[in-house]
Design a protein around this nucleic acid. Structure first.
Length: 764
RNA sequence: GCGAAAGUGGCGGAACUGGUAUACGCGCUAGACUUAGGAUCUAGUCCCGAGAGAUCGGGUUGGGGGUUCGAGUCCCCCCUUUCGCACCA
């Protein structure tokens, strides 16, 4: 009668033991052979984690255990990105205070991590919603304010009507709120920004050195930063006695500029239309364009609409007077919000010129002494003559030509070379309660006054009403709002906007290194020892949000002399999503609560154990790819573990001596090699396959009595060691039952003998 | 449209640097044990052909060309899918 595989009892026993021995704790002053691993900083939402979430943590834990068995002092901390909207919404809907709700959720999530058998260094635990963390957000904000990186301005901003707050550009996806999907609207508001655009070039250049990052993420960040080289050129407007500045990446086509187009929101627009008989009609149209939702406005399908201002500008290259138009396809926030239209060399300008019957002029190359060839193929193209321009070969083929034109334009005093970015400054203020209070006050006499460091932290008041009414609940807390001016002592009002939670997550990897330091944000000495993070594991959804902000803040901290490094994350691994068939949509989709296609780890763990979930999650496919969850296939992992379990009691069946010892020995070494190399390159699925093969071979050897007891035991012990990172509970239990007193996690990773592999290969 | 990644059995996938394609698992088929099993175990399972049979012959990695003694892997063209960007001047 064999001992049944009682995964419940085994897992409870080892989870308890790991917790008691605090197996994961690392002394930060020691860094020999160190590896700093980081999972994403999870938000403790009220929803239970599902097996799709598990992939990130299970993968990280498998890697962590593997590293430890290989003698690395691996730091694997976990903490909570605890501020955010769901907590506040829960307060409105269920009448629970955001803090209580968050604290309760953290407890639930910790229990889930425990049930997965994940070893975190809980001695380093942090939660961004407590003053001992967020006071450093405030401290950092003040330093950024002093150095001009943080500033306040009135600007058209993205407003989510459902979340009732502004959003950063990065949080607007396809014109809708990243969190709730509600289309955002534009509002003019005075808001706090971080000058991330000043770091655009460094953020771009830094990417090239990040060899351990997926190319995909780097491309996404490059696109988001959107650097364009070109020139700004001034076009005089005699009627205004003031020029309009345009930005172009094709200054070499300036001769072909037959009209100008300004965004309807352009600051000069109202003056340009002053003399126009239809002034009011144009103003009304402008208002209409301004109110067009962002998605529609910047879509290629959106019909181009424009109005002739009636004003004229002078093309500096030809001396010709050209009309000035307003049109919806020119965006106010990019470049200078105005373009020179060169219809012959730009598809959008051509479409607009044809629609409005505006002239088109081809710019082409004239050799010295050559006359204008005209007689062009396209009837719409007028003649093009280049006079006084520097010689160039071919149009716009090459930065050299463009550079020559920029130099020429600069010589003539018409403009200058210019680099423009798509990236906007990071809007960090939010009109919500559950976030870090921005540490400034407004005094009637002194105006805006930063809170002195010794008055930090500015704590969030607990006693606040969550009614769901318009406006930030914080602004209705009199005890919070009413304060004294730090300068004159007179009455003052606190800033009630709070910070974007992405500020919190931009530097948490540093706080893990000094989690309890009450005197400073973090200890530079420890940071220098442990930074950068050797391995970061998380989903692709953070490609241009968190990962861009964290790189930015790291550079800011570097410039403040607080860290030695400029890039926080050396290697980044993006695990793919777990998908499953959804009854709602009839399609295979990302596993999520709203789609109703989740699998609860609780039930799975009850039925087949956490080790089964771990092994299946790692076996399901290459971890960087999306993978479809199969309820049936999970049992394969369970059967495998059950077979391994039963094998222990079959070991004594092996004979003292046997003929095929060498085969099993060779396979043992081959498996060590395969698993080691697989884990090194994150190929967990093939590592599992190799272990299944060894287990099958060992089972066959026991069945057919072809290997000796000693070899079988050796093979079994090796199997347990190699399997431990993937299925820690059952392997620890079997290891103990084999009679070893040392924890399997504390053993060192088995080594393989290449000569054995080679000799056998020749024999084959 | 631009950029990136990828296309291998009924399914998830393996083959790392060019060297026995389809490892491992799911599913399926047959059998064993069972009162019964969605439990467990054993055998089989890319396609075509020959053979009672172990086995033997041929073909196959989206399609078409090429390089090579040798190509799933390298090069060229085409097709398809997924992802990212997209009126950014």
């Amino acid at each position: 009668m064999s001992t049944p595989y009682d995964h419940k009892a085994i897992e409870a026993k080892w989870q308890d033991r790991w917790e008691k021995t605090r197996a994961a704790e690392v002394d930060l002053r020691q860094a020999h052979g160190k590896t700093y691993m980081l999972m994403m900083f999870p938000y403790p939402s009220g929803d239970r984690l599902h097996v799709g979430h598990g992939r990130n943590y299970i993968l990280g834990d498998a890697l962590y255990r593997f590293l430890r068995m290989n003698g690395k002092r691996a730091l694997n901390p976990m903490g909570w990105d605890a501020f955010g909207l769901p907590a506040e919404n829960a307060a409105i809907q269920r009448g629970v205070h955001p803090r209580d709700w968050t604290v309760a959720n953290i407890k639930v999530m910790k229990e889930q991590f425990r049930r997965w058998g994940i070893l975190y260094d809980w001695s380093k635990e942090i939660a961004s919603c407590f003053p001992d963390y967020y006071r450093w957000n405030q401290w950092l904000f003040l330093r950024m304010l002093e150095s001009g990186i943080a500033y306040k301005k009135m600007a058209p901003v993205n407003w989510c009507p459902s979340c009732r707050t502004v959003l950063a550009n990065e949080q607007v996806v396809d014109g809708a709120c990243e969190r709730c999907g509600t289309p955002v609207v534009q509002r003019d508001l005075e808001q706090w920004f971080f000058r991330i655009t000043d770091y655009a070039d460094r953020l771009l250049a830094g990417l090239d050195a990040l060899e351990g990052w997926p190319e995909k993420v780097k491309v996404m960040q490059r696109n988001w930063i959107g650097r364009s080289e070109g020139a700004e050129i001034r076009f005089e407007i005699p009627a205004l006695k003031e020029p309009v500045t345009v930005f172009t990446t094709r200054p070499d086509t300036v001769h072909g500029a037959t009209f100008l187009v300004l965004a309807p929101e352009h600051p000069l627009a109202s003056r340009l239309i002053e003399g126009n008989p239809d002034r009011e009609g144009i103003a009304a149209w402008t208002e209409q364009v301004r109110n067009t939702p962002r998605i529609q406005r910047s879509s290629e399908e959106n019909p181009k609409e424009g109005r002739d201002t009636g004003a004229l500008a002078v093309n500096p290259a030809t001396g010709e007077e050209i009309p000035v138009w307003l049109a919806n396809y020119v965006l106010p926030e990019y470049g200078s919000g105005a373009i020179m239209a060169v219809p012959a060399h730009d598809a959008r300008d051509l479409a607009f010129a044809r629609q409005e019957g505006l002239p088109v002029r081809l710019v082409y190359h004239l050799e010295e002494g050559e006359t204008d060839p005209s007689g062009l193929t396209e009837p719409i193209l007028h003649q093009g003559v280049i006079r006084g321009a520097p010689p160039f070969d071919g149009l716009a083929d090459g930065p050299e030509t463009i550079a020559r034109f920029i130099a020429w334009i600069e010589e003539n005093g018409w403009g200058r070379g210019k680099v423009v970015y798509r990236l906007r400054d990071w809007l960090i203020s939010r009109q919500r309660y559950w976030g870090t209070p921005i540490p400034v006050v407004y005094c009637e006499t002194d105006g805006m006054v930063p809170v002195p460091d010794d008055q930090l932290p500015i704590e969030l008041p607990y006693d606040v009403e969550f009614t769901g009414r318009e406006g930030n609940p914080l602004s209705r807390s009199r005890s919070f709002v009413e304060t004294a001016c730090p300068q004159c002592g007179g009455p003052a009002r606190r800033e009630t906007d709070t910070m974007d939670t992405f500020v919190d997550s931009s530097w948490y990897y540093l706080r893990f290194l000094s989690p309890r330091d009450a005197a400073r944000m973090f200890d530079r000495e420890i940071a220098d020892r442990w930074m950068p993070v050797d391995q970061y594991i998380g989903g692709i959804e953070h490609a241009i949000l968190h990962l861009l902000y964290a790189r930015f803040i790291c550079k800011v901290l570097h410039d403040f002399g607080m860290v030695g490094i400029e890039e926080p994350f050396q290697n980044l691994f993006n695990q793919g999503m777990i998908t499953r068939f959804s009854e709602k949509s009839g399609r295979v989709e990302k596993m999520s609560k709203s789609r109703g296609n989740t699998v609860s780890p609780d039930e799975l763990i009850d039925e087949m154990g956490a080790d089964t979930e771990r092994v299946y999650t790692l076996f399901i496919g290459p971890p960087e790819k999306d993978a479809e969850w199969s309820d049936e296939a999970v049992s394969g992992a369970y059967r495998f573990l059950t077979r391994v379990w039963r094998m222990l009691e079959r070991l004594p069946e092996a004979p003292p001596t046997a003929p095929a010892d060498a085969d099993l020995e060779r396979e043992r070494h081959a498996t060590i090699q395969r698993v080691t190399q697989s884990l090194q390159r994150f190929s967990f699925n093939t590592a599992v396959a190799a272990l299944m093969e060894l287990s099958n071979s060992l089972g066959r050897a026991l069945e057919e009595k072809t290997a000796s007891r000693l070899r079988c035991e050796e093979a079994f012990d090796t199997l347990l060691q190699l399997l431990h990172p993937l299925a820690p509970h059952v392997t620890e239990e079997l290891w103990e039952r084999r009679g070893y007193t040392e924890s399997l996690l504390e053993t060192s990773w088995p080594e393989y003998d290449e000569t054995k592999l080679r000799r056998e290969r020749i024999q084959l």
